[in-house]
């Protein structure tokens, strides 16, 4: 962020022409990179639009972006349409919120304990690593048996996915902390609370945040999958219902909502990185 500010600021008048040229070159490179990053998805959308217009793809399933945009606009311009979509969005957000909150908290806690306490690690690590690769959606039937259809079972599934992601990343972060920090903590006889909260957890923070970010992505995948199968509400249900009645533009609207969720999650993740681990920026 600081870099961007420096690079995009106009060069003062009195600088050496060589440095000014250098600054200009860097500014141009940065503008070029941003333009490419924004331009590529626009290019893909145009390609899609072009293919749809000229019947290169089946327009029944892949109407062009302009057609989809127009029908989203029509749908959202009615009070009923807005309320319907908002209801689904709220249902999904609630499930993610509950599942993520429980899963991330318990995952980080157990990860830290495993990282610092050898017996806990010896007891739990093999089981954890054995279960981790199992696709969580595969145990959804069991979740339904235990928690019933609807909110509770979807949230439970999200909890599980987020828990594994955050726990394993936190554990690795704490376990493989730079050994010099252990030496400092021992040599200076830090009390246990100082060790935990001011040395090892901050040292592991980059991994913890990676776990939290991956967990959020996982939460989104699982909640939509669960809603496909069992819920009456939610963005997943909205997409699936639209598909079943072959209302393709509405289905794409659901996908767009998921895309927005993912974008917001990515922004939250990078904000967390700059706020919580400012020393880790490269």
């Amino acid at each position: 962020m600081t870099d961007a500010k420096i690079l995009l600021a106009p060069a003062p008048d009195d600088v050496d022409p060589l440095i000014a040229a250098n600054l200009r070159a860097r500014r141009m490179a940065r503008i070029r990179d941003i333009a490419l990053g924004v331009g590529f998805p626009i290019f893909l959308l145009l390609l899609w639009e072009f293919a749809a217009r000229f019947n290169l793809i089946d327009r029944r399933f892949f109407p062009g972006p302009s057609t989809i945009g127009a029908s989203i606009w029509t749908f959202l311009s009615t009070q009923a349409g807005r309320e319907l979509l908002l209801g689904h969005v709220q249902a999904t957000l609630l499930r993610i919120g509950i599942g993520y909150g429980i899963g991330a908290t318990s995952g980080v806690l157990l990860g830290v304990v495993m990282g610092l306490h050898a017996p806990t690690r010896a007891a739990i690590a093999p089981t954890l690593y054995a279960i981790f690769p199992v696709p969580k959606i595969a145990i959804y039937p069991l979740m339904i048996v235990i928690f019933g259809l609807g909110d509770a079972s979807s949230s439970a599934l999200v909890t599980l996915g987020v828990f594994f992601m955050t726990c394993i990343n936190t554990f690795a972060g704490v376990r493989y902390v730079n050994p010099i920090y252990h030496d400092v903590a021992d040599a200076f006889r830090f009390p246990p609370l100082v060790r935990w909260f001011r040395v090892f957890i901050p040292a592991a923070m980059p991994s913890i945040i990676t776990g939290l970010r991956l967990g959020l992505g996982q939460a989104l995948v699982l909640v939509v999958s669960a809603e496909f199968v069992s819920a009456d509400t939610g963005v997943g249900r909205f997409i699936w219902d639209s598909w079943q009645v072959l209302d393709v533009p509405r289905m794409f609207m659901g996908l767009a909502v998921v895309l927005i969720f993912a974008g917001l999650a990515a922004i939250a993740g990078s904000l967390a990185e700059t706020k919580l681990i400012p020393w880790n920026r490269r």
Partner: peptide, 11 residues
């Protein structure tokens, strides 16, 4: 102890 490598806590 003063250690050989960098032992300051970056946070």
């Amino acid at each position: 102890t003063v250690f050989q490598g960098d032992s300051t806590l970056p946070w």
